[in-house]
C-alpha cells in the first residue's frame, strides 16, 4: 500500500492485506462479471453499492482514487463486511500504473508477462 501512498479508512485491519489480483472499474456489473476472487478493487465510486458489490464478488480490499472519501455509512458497512477501505490521492491511471509496475496483474495466473 506504500506504493499508492494510501491512507487506511477502516480500522478493522492491521494494514497487511494480501491481494493476488487487481481490478479497476466504476461499473459494478463489470466487477461482478470479470473480477477474480481475492482481488483489490480500484474505483472512483464511493457509494455503499461498491462495498456491497465487493462483498458479493469476494473483493479483498477497495482503493478510492483522487482522495475521494466515502460517507461514514459506507465506511461502517465496509467494517461490518470486513472489507478494508483505502484512499489514495493518485488518479486511477497512476494508481494502476504503479501497481502494475510493481508486478500486480488482473489475473496473476493467466495474465500476460
Amino acid at each position: 500500500m506504500d506504493i499508492l501512498g494510501a491512507e487506511m479508512l477502516s480500522n478493522n485491519d492491521d494494514g497487511k492485506i494480501v491481494v493476488e489480483n487487481v481490478y479497476c472499474a466504476d461499473l459494478m456489473s463489470n466487477v461482478l462479471s470479470y473480477s477474480i476472487t481475492n482481488s483489490l478493487l480500484i474505483t472512483n465510486l464511493t457509494n455503499a453499492q461498491v462495498v456491497r458489490t465487493a462483498d458479493v464478488a469476494d473483493i479483498k480490499a477497495i482503493v478510492f482514487c483522487r482522495g475521494k472519501k466515502p460517507e461514514l455509512g459506507t465506511i461502517m458497512l465496509a467494517e461490518r463486511k470486513t472489507i478494508p477501505l483505502l484512499v489514495t490521492g493518485l488518479s486511477m491511471f497512476e494508481a494502476c500504473g504503479r501497481l502494475y509496475e510493481n508486478g500486480l496483474r488482473s489475473d496473476k495466473d493467466t495474465g500476460r508477462q
Binding site: 470479470y34 486511477m92 491511471f93 500486480l104
Partner: peptide, 19 residues
C-alpha cells in the same frame, strides 16, 4: 481484450502518465 488494469499498466510502461 485486456482488462482496464492491465491495459493501463502497459500504457504506463510506455511512458504515459496522468498527473
Amino acid at each position: 481484450s485486456l482488462p482496464a488494469f492491465d491495459l493501463v499498466g502497459l500504457l504506463y510502461d510506455l511512458g504515459l502518465r496522468c498527473r
